[in-house]
Amino acid sequence: MINLNCKIETPKNIDELLKLLAVENFNSKILAGGTDLIVGKIQGSKRFVDTELLIDINKIEELHKIDLIDDKIIIGASTTFSEIENNKIINEHLPLLKKAVSKIGSLQIRNRATIAGNFVNNAPCADSVPPLLVYNAELELISFGNKRTISLENFLEAPYKTQLQKSELVSKIIIPVPDKNIIGDFYKLGRRRAVAISRITLAVLCRIENNSFDDIRIASGAVTPIGKRFYEIENFTREKRINNDLLINLSQMLGEEILKITGLRWSSAYKLPVVQQMFYQLLNNIVIKK
């Protein structure tokens, strides 16, 4: 029998929750799906070893829903991957997010693990991050008497580190509804056909007009210390004619950008060439489908 050996609170609403978060003298963590936190606690991960209080947000309905309001899709922080995968709004407007979350872990994990939990941990391999980055996701952070909005990109700071303050909670993810003409794809490489930690993830959104990229957004995961957008490549690409040389060129640029960030690490020998190769293949697929 395992005991987590800490205190647990189960606030019924946001107000109760924010008051708990405002208390300074506890080292607290939010408990949502628990698929990372409970494992971390049991394995004695240094990220959780000092946690004295778990604040369980599962009873708070407001944090657990998906809405389309005006031209924004609002995903509550404790919405599970399964709920996202099976949601009509997501299916219609955010196909890359659907694809990414449907490949996370096992069904048992997806039935518990939550979207905010995925990036609040900020593991390099968090699969929902690249699609959220290319969808220009913003986060609403709330604390007692305060509310702020921050882009996901700015929120993510370093591996396992974010801009989240101790008294704050990610309450929702806000995604502008993408333009109808936008196409794209998500790619994941793991060591096994299912339930595999990502070695590489890529997300690309683009709009192709007259055989050139009118707009393109590119993000990766698991190849850089944290999930990342590649603005320089995006800017370079805009309005360029699409041909094989351009796709190769973009893929090499992606390799160079990643190399700049990571330097040569043990995994670079594999990941660097493969990310270029598969980015090239992904671009090809998108262009051909068009």
Binding site: L4, I8, T10, L31, G33, G34, T35, I38, V39, D56, N58, S82, L107, Q108, I109, N111, R112
Partner: peptide, 13 residues
């Protein structure tokens, strides 16, 4: 109605 891992859920939940 959902399959979950009972090693990753707390009893009170």
């Amino acid at each position: 109605g959902k399959a979950i891992n009972s090693c990753l859920m707390l009893a009170y939940q």
